[in-house]
Amino acid sequence: MAVIEVKNLKKYYKVHQKEPGLSGSIKSLFHRKYYDVKAVDNVSFEIGEGELVGFIGPNGAGKTTTLKVLSGLLYPTSGFVTALGYTPWDRKPAYQKQFSLVMGQKNQLWWDLPAIESFILNKEIYEVPDAQYKKTLDGLVELLDVKDILKVQVRKLSLGQRMKMELIASLIHSPKILFLDEPTIGLDVVMQKKMRDFIKSYNKKYNATIILTSHYMDDVKELCQRVVIIDKGKLIFDGALDEIIKKYADHKLITVVFGDEVKSQQLAKFGQIKEFEYPKAVISVKRSEAPKIAARILEDFTVEDVNIEEPQIEDIIREVFTGKDFA
């Protein structure tokens, strides 16, 4: 059964346009030009219980807007949305007690107090029973390894430590649905990895439904079985990660290391040269012809090494966003 259902969701903003400079400011006092920004434009999807779905798309694609609609912060312009049977923007406490929105750049902790105080406050706000609170907190503290810093003023924590605390504060009420907006933003590689491991285990342990948005493909590659790609407010892909490759990448990359001198003109007939710096060349060829072409290269040249690969998922997605045609 779908935990989250979104049908034909549209969210348009009216934004006023100001001409540059002081005269523009004065003009805008009296007469403002408005135009519509289509932040989310006719998006539909369903998410089942326990799914971990990644929303990807460039800045301003509409990912965060979608999460905000799902958490009840925004009214949609039109469309139907239900989560756990509730309409998010009714902001019913019964719904609010079952989800959590974590935004990497926003913080809810009391800056001047140790994080534990904010946890206690959230416990009361969400009306978590004492025993459950203790159990949840102990579990999270263990999982994130923050026992030593629970009583340190939040302002004295490092960014990574603070993000962990933010996560704990957001999870004190054991939400069934988690909206994670850029959970790894600004973290170093080690912390990113830890955060990912945590999200993965939280998803498994509690069968929690998780939607996360991220700029880091690694987040998505490692965590999400299912990916939703949004660009300019439109949903352009929804499915398994490897399907992106099947759908958009009809080519493969042949990497060759040559033993003898080779001119780039000699290679042009095989396919599109992506990279050429003697002795290494990367050639993009049609998927179906890849084995044949590789064989011909081996025949025609002295080759030290050859490698046939799927294109990088980052590259495919980047090319999808820049509107490059693959067909």
Binding site: R91, N122, I125
Partner: peptide
């Protein structure tokens, strides 16, 4: 600055 969001998603 949008801090209000933190409260709007909570039962308070």
């Amino acid at each position: 600055n949008g801090t209000l969001n933190n409260f709007l998603v909570k039962p308070i």
